[in-house]
C-alpha cells in the first residue's frame, strides 16, 4: 500500500519537476547528478532508520559524520599523509564506532531519552569538531579518497554503489538477523520483548552503534564529494533524514518501516532536491519547502492512513 502510494508520488513529482525545469530534469546530466547526490542522503537516512525503528531518534548523525570527516581529513592531510586513504577511513570508522558506544552508553545503559541524549551529544560532538578545526575548512584529499565520492565503475557512480551495498546489508540485517527482528519487536513493544528474553539494552546499544557506523560511512562519501571537511557541513540533512524515514513508512513511534521504503523515499527527495537545484532555489527556500513537505506527509498520514 505504502509502496504504491510512494511510487505514485515519485511519478507525479518527477513529472512535475520535469515540467517545471522545462525538461532539464530529463537530461542525462541530471540523472548523473541524482546518482551522485542521492547516496549521501541515502546513507544518512539509513543511519537515522535504526533509531527511529526503535522508537527513538538520532539527532547527532550529522555531527558524527562531520567529526569523522575532520579526523579523516586531518589524517590524510596532516598527521599520516603517508598512510593515505585506507588508514584514514579505518581511523574514521573506528571513531564512528567509538561515538556509537558513547551514544549507546547514555541511551541504553543510563536510559536517557534518545531525543535529549543525542541532542546533547550533537552539541558535544560538533563542539569537538569546532575545537579541532577552529571553524576552518580542511580541504585537499588524495585522489584515491576522492574516488569514493566522484569516481565511477563501469559507468556507475561509486557513491551509488556504496549506497547500494549498505542498503542491501541493512536489508539483510533488519530482516534476517536476530538483531533486526528484535529491533522491530522492541520498537513495537519494549515491555513484551523484555518479558520474552530479548536483551533490550543490547538491542538499543547496537542500534546506536549501527547508526553511528553508517554515519561514518556517509562521512566518507560526504568528505570525498565535497573534497573538504568542516564542523558544520550538511546540517540541513538532519531534517531530511527524518523526512525520508517518515515518508518511507518508518513510524516515528517505532516498530515499522522497511529498507525499500527508505530507498524509494530517498529517490523521491533527491529528485525534488535536484529539481530545486535546477530551478535555482536557494538552500533556504529548499529547507522551507522540506519543512512544509514533512508537515504535509505527517498530516497526510494522520488524515488518510490512520
Amino acid at each position: 500500500m505504502q509502496i504504491v502510494a510512494l511510487m505514485v508520488l515519485l511519478g507525479v513529482l518527477f513529472a512535475l519537476m520535469a515540467f517545471l525545469t522545462q525538461g532539464k530534469l530529463l537530461e542525462a546530466q541530471s540523472f548523473q547528478a541524482i546518482a551522485f547526490q542521492m547516496p549521501l542522503l541515502g546513507l544518512l537516512t539509513l543511519a537515522q532508520m535504526g533509531p527511529m525503528l526503535s522508537g527513538g531518534i538520532d539527532l547527532s548523525i550529522i555531527a558524527t559524520a562531520n567529526l569523522v570527516s575532520i579526523v579523516m581529513a586531518l589524517s590524510m592531510t596532516q598527521f599520516f599523509p603517508a598512510l593515505q586513504a585506507p588508514f584514514a577511513i579505518l581511523l574514521g570508522l573506528g571513531l564512528s564506532l567509538l561515538l556509537g558506544i558513547l551514544k549507546g552508553f547514555f541511551i541504553a545503559l543510563v536510559s536517557v531519552p534518545a531525543i535529549i541524549a543525542t541532542l546533547g551529544l550533537m552539541i558535544f560532538i560538533r563542539g569537538l569538531a569546532l575545537v579541532i578545526t577552529r571553524g576552518y575548512v580542511i580541504a585537499g584529499f588524495p585522489p584515491d579518497f576522492l574516488f569514493i565520492g566522484n569516481g565511477t565503475v563501469v559507468g556507475i557512480p561509486v557513491p551509488f554503489l556504496v549506497f547500494a551495498i549498505f542498503a542491501s546489508l541493512m536489508y539483510l540485517l533488519l530482516s534476517r538477523t536476530q538483531f533486526g527482528l528484535e529491533l522491530y519487536l522492541f520498537g513495537s513493544n519494549p515491555v513484551a520483548t523484555l518479558f520474552s528474553g530479548v536483551n533490550n539494552r543490547k538491542v538499543v546499544f547496537r542500534t546506536y552503534l549501527l547508526s553511528s557506523f553508517l554515519a561514518g560511512i556517509a562521512s566518507c562519501v560526504m568528505a570525498s564529494r565535497f573534497n573538504a571537511a568542516q564542523a558544520d557541513y550538511g546540517e540541513s540533512y538532519l531534517l531530511l533524514t527524518v523526512l525520508a524515514c517518515v515518508l518511507g513508512g518508518v513510524s516515528p513511534s517505532g516498530g515499522s518501516g522497511r529498507v525499500w521504503g527508505i530507498v524509494v523515499s530517498v529517490v523521491v527527495l533527491q529528485v525534488v532536491a535536484t529539481g530545486f537545484n535546477l530551478l535555482g532555489f536557494s538552500s533556504h527556500l529548499a529547507s522551507a519547502l522540506w519543512g512544509m513537505i514533512l508537515l504535509g506527509v505527517v498530516l497526510f498520514n494522520r488524515l488518510f492512513l490512520a
Partner: peptide
C-alpha cells in the same frame, strides 16, 4: 499541528523551524 497530527512535537517543530526560518531567509536574503 501538534494536536492534530499527534506526531512527536520535536518532529513538528523542527519542520516549522525550517519553514519559518527558510521562508524568512529566502525572502530577505
Amino acid at each position: 499541528l501538534v494536536y492534530y497530527t499527534r506526531v512527536h512535537p520535536v518532529i513538528i517543530t523542527i519542520s516549522t523551524l525550517n519553514f519559518y526560518y527558510g521562508v524568512l531567509m529566502f525572502l530577505t536574503k
